[in-house]
């Protein structure tokens, strides 16, 4: 029995992206469905992180970056009238290297809500606890809320960053190789966490770890030289890839 298809969250249509004259993404088309984990895989420099960053317009920070085509979020063009701050509030991001701000654990989590105008201490307290609990790190950090976020371990820092992203109550979470700087145990914790978060959020993750993509994602897109070679159900991509290049990559013949 087929389940009813999940609603569309983000749609990328005929997108091309250039850094000056270098074309980093070529004619990309992709649908991200609500409450699914979509994984981007591919060798370094294939454009997967670039596409991820375009989804909440983090590429705006790069002067030489130019985009053609269309990205819609809930049907709305994100490069159109939509307010960037509003977009990033709905589409949170977790980066490759854990990047907690050099302030307390509490202030790290509260930074986002404060940015969006929440000032009341009671409300902030509640958001901080909720977010840390959602990121499954409350028990480890509840006694260290006033301590510097730089003093906790790398794995904890990354989960703190996930909690920080959750604190602004986003609908989508983008993760750019969130476990590449972490040890296997921390990696497992984050993978478990993502599987849990899937019910409430839409997740897009870039990963170099083939096993990770296979374990946690529903859909996988394989990128090569700025193009999507293959995009489909993770099960199918990993068990019977249609393209020879995909097969070569996932079996470790290059990359």
């Amino acid at each position: 029995m087929l389940k009813a298809p999940k609603p569309l969250k983000i749609r990328v249509e005929d997108m091309n992206l250039y850094y000056d004259s270098f074309q980093a993404l070529i004619n990309v088309n992709l649908d991200v469905l609500t409450n699914e984990i979509t994984a981007f895989i591919g060798p370094s420099g294939c454009g997967k992180s670039t596409l991820l960053k375009s989804l909440n317009r983090m590429n705006d920070l790069i002067e030489s970056c130019r985009i053609t085509g269309k990205i819609t979020y809930d049907g709305e063009d994100i490069y159109g009238k939509m307010n960037v701050s509003e977009l990033r509030k709905r589409v949170g991001m977790v980066f490759q290297k854990p990047n907690p701000f050099p302030m307390s654990v509490y202030d790290n989590i509260a930074y986002g809500p404060r940015t969006h105008g929440i000032k009341k201490k009671k409300v902030l307290d509640q958001i901080v606890e909720e977010s840390l609990q959602n990121a499954a790190i409350w028990d480890e950090l509840k006694d260290r809320l006033k301590k510097s976020a730089l003093a906790i371990s790398g794995g904890q820092q990354q989960r703190l960053c996930i909690a920080r992203a959750l604190a602004i109550k986003p609908e989508v979470i983008l993760l750019d190789e969130p476990t590449s700087a972490l040890d296997p145990i921390s990696t497992t914790k984050i993978e478990d966490l993502l599987a849990e978060l899937k019910d409430r959020y839409t997740i897009v993750i870039v990963t170099h770890n083939m096993g990770q993509a296979a374990r946690i994602s529903d859909k996988t897109a394989f990128f090569l030289h700025g193009e999507i070679v293959e995009f489909g159900r993770t099960m199918e991509i990993f068990s019977k890839p249609k393209d020879k290049k995909t097969e070569d990559y996932i079996t470790g013949r290059f990359g």
Partner: peptide, 13 residues
Amino acid sequence: DMYREGSYGLGAS
């Protein structure tokens, strides 16, 4: 730069 990215990523101006 990762501090800046973190801040922008949360929708900060």
